[in-house]
Write a protein that binds this DNA or RNA. Structure first.
Lengths: 343, 343
DNA sequence: TTGTAAGCGTTATCAT
DNA sequence: ATGATAACGCTTACAA
């Protein structure tokens, strides 16, 4: 009893057997008498014995813990990913330790350090908006430390990445706007250094091109922070007193789209009659705003599940960096709601 | 080098000194020559030495890790709490391990087990909707294991709780509706077994009473799941073909309020002209829906910070269960937007 | 069927 | 100024 937890030693002492006997009895090893097993288990129960995972980690050089590094939990997308991760991790006896970087590079570096110190068995990463230097990840990869990137993937060799088809998602969204008769479609884009931003931008541009629409350079407006406020001010500046205003918006994600919608309404413009809007990610609120926002939904939960499965395979050496298809690309789904449908 | 991390032993061997010398040199203990310190640190750097946190945990019976048990990260409120927790934890050299219960009792119990096995130094808990039996927490409390409850607090002795003043928040919200001239105000309430639900209900009832309005029993409708769909169906049933329909809604949280708004709009009712609506929690989307939703905002980040500070004090024995004011109650703020303001 | 002892990485205690 | 050793809780050859 005393202060802390009962240990194998406590049980051994009380029963006048050795610790190895107790250890073996508890895990039903062959060659332990039923009588001993019974007694050990009984006492373990009584003392509320619980194996010390830390001692196990040290002994086995394995912590049964995986780390997850993400920009922010408040992003609906990331919180669904986490759920997927936990699901698979728990089902396989792994714990999850979480670090948010708050989109800060420095925070990302220290998160990596902390996790390595804690002997995690592998890590899932979606890096910060600020990250352009990947040395901290490169080091892990070079040492063959199990690491899987998702959503935001680095420009590095020999990485395993789980993403959605951002290009196709954007392409479909913009194609849909064109099909609805919109012609002057602007893009509120994401931070330039993220691959997802580039992909979505490419999809946007190709959809226009394939429909014979010539995109003007000023149609692409970067919203690096992706906040509602930023979007409101950019959209207002763009549409206010503009004789030749655009007639549709494809936004990098739903918060940006929602901000744009608020700006448009304040300017007295009707959605979708005057301006059509499509977002990206299918946030929780997107179906609840007015008009409901059309958007490209990403399977966040599935991304979490998939990335974690692969990571566990890596950890268990069932696969290795080379043998695996390096990019898992999941499909998006275009959800057509009222914000983009001309009546 | 080899497969894994460099250890203190590796350094000791290479430098022909003992492991204790290396250990002391690395932490600038007195009584080690500057020369030795220099050499040790240099080699440590070169080998990318990183202390093994697991070994430290075992040695010190302390993991510098705290656990957080919450129902779901997708709840905006909980994700802001997590940010507050991480902020304080990291600043004090602690890691955070996270478990979602997905509102399941069984999951909650196993989370507690896992965390204890992993020798966490303390835990922050907001329990699941299903939880009515608190034995798993009671056990921890009896053993004086550091634990702090937040938001959802149990009916137990000797617990430390961090909450917001749900009663006052609800009271103010309903008082505001009354001030706006609404008279038949219904309440879409939360799960009955949560104290927050009771508090909000009490605040609602007292605000009515204090204004001389007699609340009818049928004005309180429970929305145990708190989903948008549930709210839509309950609201629709209530307002459809109802000659004597209510003229305002106070909802247990914003998702429920948003669902109600969608239902009202489908029925052709105007907000706030026909029906006023106030929610709770100030979700991210609440200012972006149409009309913007009035709501009671809870300081989630601050709750996380406060709860974590107290937990660390407990862990460091700077305080104990008895000496502390057992309930920290933070204030809410009523955010008045268009959904509840008659013109 | 059970016990002994070494070892995982680190540090505290006691020597030297 | 440095070294040897034991201990944290557990597992696992190897012995008996």
């Amino acid at each position: 009893m005393k202060s802390g937890q009962a240990t194998i030693k406590d049980i051994a002492r009380e029963l006048n057997v050795s610790t190895s006997t107790v250890s073996r009895a508890l895990k039903d090893y062959p060659g332990i008498s039923d009588e001993t097993k019974r007694k050990v288990k009984e006492l373990a129960d009584k003392l509320h014995y619980r194996p010390n995972a830390v001692a196990l980690s040290l002994r086995k050089s394995k912590s049964f813990t995986i780390g997850v590094i993400i920009p922010e939990v408040v992003h609906f997308f990331f919180s669904t990913v986490i759920s997927g991760v936990e699901e698979v991790a728990f089902a396989n006896g792994y714990n999850v330790i979480l670090c948010q970087t708050n989109e800060k590079f420095s925070r990302e570096r220290s998160s990596v350090e902390t996790m390595l110190s804690n002997q995690i068995d592998g890590v899932l990463v979606s890096f910060s908006r600020e990250t352009t230097n990947f040395d901290h990840f490169k080091k892990m990869i070079d040492r063959e430390f199990p690491i899987v990137f998702f959503d935001r993937i680095p420009d590095l060799e020999n990485t395993i990445n789980v993403t959605v088809n951002d290009y196709q998602g954007a392409y479909n969204a913009v194609k849909h706007l064109i099909d609805q008769g919109f012609k002057k479609i602007v893009h509120l884009s994401g931070p330039d250094n993220l691959a997802i931003s580039k992909q979505r931008k490419e999809g946007y541009l190709d959809a226009l091109k394939d429909s014979g629409i010539v995109a003007k350079p000023e149609w692409i407006l970067e919203c690096p922070y992706g906040t509602e406020k930023e979007s409101i001010s950019i959209t207002t500046a763009l549409f206010k007193n503009n004789e030749n205003r655009p007639d549709a918006i494809f936004a990098h994600h739903d918060i940006v789209a929602a901000g744009a919608m608020m700006a448009l309404k304040s300017l007295g413009l009707k959605i979708p009659e005057d301006v059509g809007v499509v977002g990206f990610s299918n946030w929780q609120f997107s179906s609840m705003i007015d008009p409901p926002l059309s958007t490209v939904s990403q399977p966040g939960f599935q991304i979490g599940e998939t990335a974690t499965k692969i990571l566990l395979d890596l950890i268990h050496k069932k696969t290795n960096m080379e043998s695996i298809s390096q990019n898992i690309v999941l499909d998006t789904e275009l959800l057509i709601r009222k914000s983009s449908v001309k009546v």
